[in-house]
Measured scan of single mutants.
Amino acid sequence: MTEYKLVVVGAGGVGKSALTIQLIQNHFVDEYDPTIEDSYRKQVVIDGETCLLDILDTAGQEEYSAMRDQYMRTGEGFLCVFAINNTKSFEDIHHYREQIKRVKDSEDVPMVLVGNKCDLPSRTVDTKQAQDLARSYGIPFIETSAKTRQGVDDAFYTLVREIRKHKEKMSKDGKKKKKKSKTKCVIM
Results as ranks from 00 to 15, higher is better:
2 T>H: 13
3 E>G: 12
3 E>C: 09
4 Y>E: 05
4 Y>G: 10
5 K>T: 05
5 K>E: 04
5 K>C: 02
6 L>H: 01
6 L>T: 04
6 L>W: 12
6 L>G: 02
6 L>M: 12
6 L>V: 09
6 L>Q: 01
7 V>W: 07
8 V>I: 12
8 V>K: 01
8 V>R: 00
9 V>K: 02
10 G>T: 00
10 G>K: 02
10 G>D: 00
10 G>Q: 00
11 A>V: 12
11 A>L: 13
11 A>C: 12
11 A>T: 08
12 G>C: 04
12 G>K: 05
12 G>Q: 04
12 G>H: 08
13 G>K: 09
13 G>W: 04
13 G>A: 04
14 V>P: 02
14 V>F: 07
15 G>Y: 00
16 K>D: 12
16 K>T: 15
16 K>Y: 00
16 K>N: 15
16 K>Q: 15
16 K>R: 15
16 K>I: 15
17 S>H: 01
18 A>L: 02
18 A>T: 14
18 A>P: 14
19 L>V: 10
19 L>P: 00
20 T>H: 03
20 T>P: 07
20 T>M: 08
20 T>W: 15
21 I>N: 14
22 Q>R: 14
23 L>G: 14
23 L>V: 12
23 L>A: 14
23 L>P: 03
24 I>S: 10
24 I>F: 07
24 I>N: 09
25 Q>W: 03
26 N>D: 11
26 N>A: 13
26 N>T: 09
28 F>R: 03
28 F>S: 04
28 F>C: 08
28 F>A: 05
29 V>P: 06
29 V>R: 05
29 V>Y: 12
30 D>W: 06
30 D>S: 10
31 E>G: 13
31 E>N: 12
32 Y>L: 07
33 D>I: 02
33 D>H: 04
33 D>P: 15
33 D>Q: 04
34 P>H: 14
34 P>N: 12
34 P>F: 12
35 T>C: 15
35 T>G: 15
35 T>L: 15
35 T>N: 14
36 I>Y: 02
37 E>I: 05
37 E>H: 04
38 D>Q: 01
38 D>H: 02
38 D>I: 00
38 D>V: 02
39 S>F: 05
39 S>H: 07
39 S>R: 04
39 S>E: 08
39 S>V: 11
40 Y>D: 00
40 Y>H: 07
40 Y>T: 02
40 Y>V: 07
41 R>Q: 01
41 R>E: 01
41 R>H: 03
42 K>T: 07
42 K>Q: 08
43 Q>L: 08
44 V>Y: 08
44 V>Q: 08
44 V>D: 10
45 V>Q: 12
45 V>R: 12
45 V>N: 11
46 I>L: 08
46 I>P: 13
46 I>T: 11
47 D>Y: 03
47 D>N: 06
47 D>W: 02
48 G>F: 03
48 G>I: 03
48 G>T: 07
48 G>K: 09
50 T>V: 11
50 T>Y: 06
50 T>P: 13
50 T>C: 09
51 C>E: 07
51 C>V: 13
52 L>S: 08
52 L>W: 04
53 L>Y: 10
53 L>V: 14
53 L>Q: 08
53 L>T: 10
53 L>I: 12
53 L>H: 09
54 D>C: 02
54 D>P: 01
54 D>S: 07
55 I>V: 15
55 I>R: 01
55 I>G: 11
55 I>A: 15
56 L>Y: 12
57 D>T: 01
58 T>H: 09
58 T>E: 06
59 A>M: 09
59 A>D: 09
60 G>P: 14
60 G>T: 15
61 Q>W: 04
61 Q>I: 09
61 Q>D: 08
61 Q>H: 08
61 Q>K: 03
62 E>C: 08
62 E>A: 11
63 E>W: 03
63 E>C: 04
64 Y>S: 13
64 Y>V: 08
64 Y>T: 13
